[in-house]
Design a protein around this nucleic acid. Structure first.
Lengths: 109, 109
DNA sequence: ATAATATGTCGTATATTTACGTCATTAATT
DNA sequence: AATTAATGACGTAAATATACGACATATTAT
């Protein structure tokens, strides 16, 4: 029933990233990871008003689009932002928005 | 069951926009509207490989976050991009991403 | 007045997301 | 070796999103 495949790989990719950013819990997680550069993993569930398993699920979705990374350290797993990829993603989203903005305004490029 | 309200209005707002952009059909609609500045409404359903009603639903979601506008002209309804709002939205998304990027890199501001 | 055209509304089936508890696993600690 | 702590994996209920057909409404054209 899902007709997502009917659209270009490009649009699928871009919308996938937007989708990952489309939940306040995931934005809160990103903000928290940015603040505590230390990237402690379990503490995220304490910070976010959701159960540990739910947070884990959100973390996976963020990882799927490469916004974050996880690194095992003994029994713990330290999550942190993927700064390089975030920058790339920001450029990607920007260029999409700029493109429709520009075509519409006809005053760029 | 939805716990979206537990997060700040700010995060709710930003994630709402990301969410609206989180489907390839809606991105395709935005691109089409950008190309055909003429903003014909029914033609969108011809361009997009989805039924008229489904497209209409996607249009409503885009309208809800002010990415597009609709203007009735007789029996037709001309949709078009809300350029001013798109620009504002781009700034909003940018500033969110830049913020987490910067905190993370500690090399800006 | 009637027909044709363009949209919107409603109901609904299916798919996906959200949210959580329970159980399994793995690594330190005692 | 047994316990504790930190995660991941799995199953599942409830909420949302996706997709569409059928019907309703409104504005032109005939």
């Amino acid at each position: 029933m899902t007709k997502v495949e009917l659209f270009s790989k490009d649009l699928q990719k871009i919308s996938g990233v937007f989708k990952a950013l489309g939940h306040p819990a995931r934005l809160a997680i990103l903000q928290y990871l940015a603040e505590t550069r230390v990237c402690i993993s379990g503490d995220i569930s304490n910070e976010i008003p959701l159960s540990r398993t739910t947070v884990s699920q959100h973390l996976n979705e963020l990882k799927e689009v490469n916004l974050i990374q996880g690194e095992i350290e003994g029994v713990k797993k330290n999550y942190c932002l993927n700064a390089k990829e975030i920058s790339r993603i920001k450029d990607m989203l920007d260029s999409f928005l700029i493109k429709i903005e520009c075509i519409d305004n006809q005053n760029c490029q």
